[in-house]
Write a protein that binds this DNA or RNA. Structure first.
Lengths: 341, 341
DNA sequence: ATGAAAGCGCTAACAC
DNA sequence: GTGTTAGCGCTTTCAT
């Protein structure tokens, strides 16, 4: 059986409260007493029981991160960033996968397990704007992503519209005139696809270039194979284009492969840009130009807001934060001179 | 404030123990009583406090998974599998990233936070065989990977040697004679690289083909860029080969890209096989032949062993389990007829 | 079939 | 500075 505070107190010859004071770095402990206690702690290999501490103190030192699937690279990198940001604040992270399933997304918020943590960082993929009122739990929530705005929770999101616009402008600035889109979602207005397509349209409009639905390829979801399928679709249509905006990196990668297979040179014949700045985009051939949506900032902001909300649940009205983005120009738009990995 | 058992008991007009019985599905509760209690629970929106339950019962319903980095696709997919396997048993998963740092790997086992979970699934990357005695913690451990054998913990590992041998044999069976290796580790004997290279050598020996160090490319770590660098190295050597065994999928992907860039056709000129069966290998062009090392089985076995060990810590001596593997033949070795995604 | 009492290991108030 | 007391919300044991 593991040693308890009482065991330590007995061995050190002090009261068990004194041991607690030492452990919690209370100021008023005599040095000699502290030394005695520390010796006893070392001797017994005492470790505080965090469960007991949680029960008493009302907080656990853990947070929950709920996301669709770690198998999707974007979410793996998001989780990586959240865990690192949490570690900096001394928090551990409990991960729940929802599989982008509506029922499981709702369950995450209702589960008693959530109370094993102090708060929830939630990246829904099935719930949408119409579910804004369902975003609530026994712990504070920080919402991530582009699917729900104006809920009663704090929200961290990327600047999808301006970032997509900047990506498109990057291609326009390079002299490209006919920019195809890979990965649009039929009829979507908000959500990543809808917002990024809006940014694309804004960039075109600003330069007086008419929008042409003929060079926009739609997909059902952003799975890996669909970028390739969408590009096949575009090639089959026989339309001409000199650049491609993949609405995320995975789609862009699929598009690049199909272009290469069909004999097009990237970027010489067709320039390609993605979105997300996944780690792997730095190691493909050519390296993939993309938009860094500020993943580290998303993670750190989410943690910071969650901690503020945990400390003071009703402190301020719900906040919306948008992170800074940055166009990352690599070989797929600039050629090999610009961005050897 | 959240409702407690006592609140429910008061509203239902029963003792608070009866409420506990209902919640824990004890058999001996009269139906009418149960109904009363359930009504009160619904009325108050009662949720059990899992922290209190943990303190009293001594187990938390959570396990810790410690791995290098979720950003590495192999570990992201492993974590995905572990979380799903845990969910099937009603467990949640707390993830710690060690960054493949020796100090952090040791800290994971020493941290009091570990006691917020019932056990540890640990995939070390910095610790090695010489550290076998350091693998211990306040909770049961199931060790994953190829770096440490014969510790005092249960261990789940893939069949690296036979699986690598099978991958090599797959290439030999296709008539390939000169099989280059990408990703060997200088001087390594155990560890994924050492074991897989052994499997490769065994396959050659069995067919009477001499081992040629001239077509083995060494790397320092299995980072994404190194597969490409290793292939450049091989091409620079001017050696000839008609197949490549990438010691993992990431390396193999890098090798494929460099081969294609250099004008070789895959698989016509050079067949390529990887190792790990990452999700993405099904969506590259060509799709990548690889070895499925049994990731789902690894996850499920680890969870099962951990639960057994939690229930009965000293039950049996430490166990070593090796999972079943399977060569997955795709386009990079078989051509497009065999494996359209 | 239901209830009363004890206590998991700790922190927080308050006394000394 | 240090000790005493109470109790977080629950499960467990034992009694009824």
């Amino acid at each position: 059986m593991a040693a308890t505070l009482h065991d330590v107190a007995r061995v050190a010859g002090v009261s068990f409260k004194t041991v607690s004071n030492v452990i919690n770095h209370h100021p008023h402990v005599r040095d000699t007493t502290r030394a005695k206690v520390e010796k006893a702690i070392a001797e017994l290999g005492y470790r505080p029981n965090l469960t007991a501490r949680s029960l008493r103190s009302g907080h656990t030192g853990a947070i929950t991160l709920a996301l669709p699937q770690l198998r999707l690279p974007y979410f793996a990198e998001l989780a990586d960033a959240v865990i690192e940001a949490a570690a900096k604040r001394g928090l551990v992270v409990l991960i729940e996968q929802t599989g982008a399933d509506r029922k499981r997304e709702l369950e995450v918020m209702a589960s008693p397990r959530l109370k094993m943590s102090d708060g929830l960082i939630f990246s829904p993929l099935a719930l949408g704007q119409e579910d804004a009122d369902l975003i609530k739990a026994d712990v504070p929530i920080v919402l991530l992503g582009e699917r729900i705005f104006d809920s009663s929770s704090d929200h961290v999101t990327m600047q999808n519209v301006p970032a997509a616009r900047a990506a498109t402008e990057h291609l326009l600035d390079l002299g490209r005139k006919r920019i195809a889109v890979v990965g649009a979602h039929e009829g979507e207005v908000i959500g990543s696809a809808g917002l990024r397509l809006r940014g694309y349209r804004e960039a075109l409009e600003a330069r007086g270039i008419p929008y042409d639905d003929g060079i926009v390829a739609y997909v059902v979801d952003w799975h890996r194979s669909n970028g390739a399928a969408a590009m096949h679709d575009l090639l089959d249509r026989g339309v001409s284009f000199d650049a491609v905006f993949g609405l995320n990196d995975t789609l862009a990668q699929g598009a690049v492969r199909v272009l290469q297979e069909a004999g097009y040179r990237v970027p010489d014949d067709v320039a390609v840009i993605g979105f997300d700045d996944l780690d792997e985009t730095r190691y493909t051939l050519p390296t993939l130009s993309t938009v860094d949506p500020g993943r580290t900032e998303i993670a750190e902001t989410a943690i910071r807001m969650l901690l503020e909300r945990i400390k003071d649940p009703a402190g301020t009205p719900p906040r919306e934060v948008e992170t800074a983005f940055r166009v990352v120009a690599r070989e797929s738009t600039m050629g090999s001179a610009a961005g050897a990995a």
